[in-house]
Amino acid sequence: MLLEVDHVSKAFGGVRAVADCSFAVQEGTITALIGPNGAGKTTAFNLISGILTPDSGRIKFAGNDITGLRPHKIARLGVGRTFQITRELGDLTVLENMVVGTARGTFRELLGRRVLAREEQQAMELLDFVGIARLADQKAKTLSYGQRKLLEFASVLMSRPRLVLLDEPAGGVNPALLDRIVDRIRTLNQTGITFLIVEHNMDMVMNLSDEVVVMAHGEVITQGPPTRIRSDDRVLDAYLGRV
């Protein structure tokens, strides 16, 4: 297993956002994390990427215990993530947004050039891959919503992550763009990158993912292949509110 979430809980005040949550993501798969609003999906992402620290439970990535590590450490181990509401750095150019994660390493590297030639090459290829290479020198705040989604998606790939967490990549995106994103996710998955995707678009979830994890009120209620999840009563209950 590439990612193992093991009995993780997180409460905010009295609200148990994630309660005794356990699931696993197998290397090389596209796994969807679904559930109604407030189910704890984004909190789970924040716990995995280190923005939040679990109250209890362990999280393992590629065999390493990453529980409580700071986000940059987890990122450097090979976990990339995007945000539901894009968080591009508006005053930086698109290209700078792409290479910002390279600001790490030795003293000498940190005082070296802002953008190395090979990084620029890689960034331009990725921007080309998602179709916004021509915007490279524009400030990120001048981008449209869809372009920001694409930038966020492309920038997370810069560090060659093993696992990519996508928080609602299809949210608010037009159908043509959605097709492009789905196609890019598939292409990348074939090169060996594992995906964990939070998504509300059920068509996308069902035809893209190998495995689906369903959360409701902070707990994982079931996990399985999409065909089984589609006909699982508990999933319908969770979404439709039947008890």
Binding site: R70, H72, R81, R87, L89, G90, L92, V100
Partner: peptide
């Protein structure tokens, strides 16, 4: 570049590594 990134969004800068 890292300083300008964290000046705008510290969480994003952290997650970027």
């Amino acid at each position: 570049l890292g300083l300008r990134a964290l000046a705008q969004d510290e969480t994003k800068a952290e997650v970027a590594g």
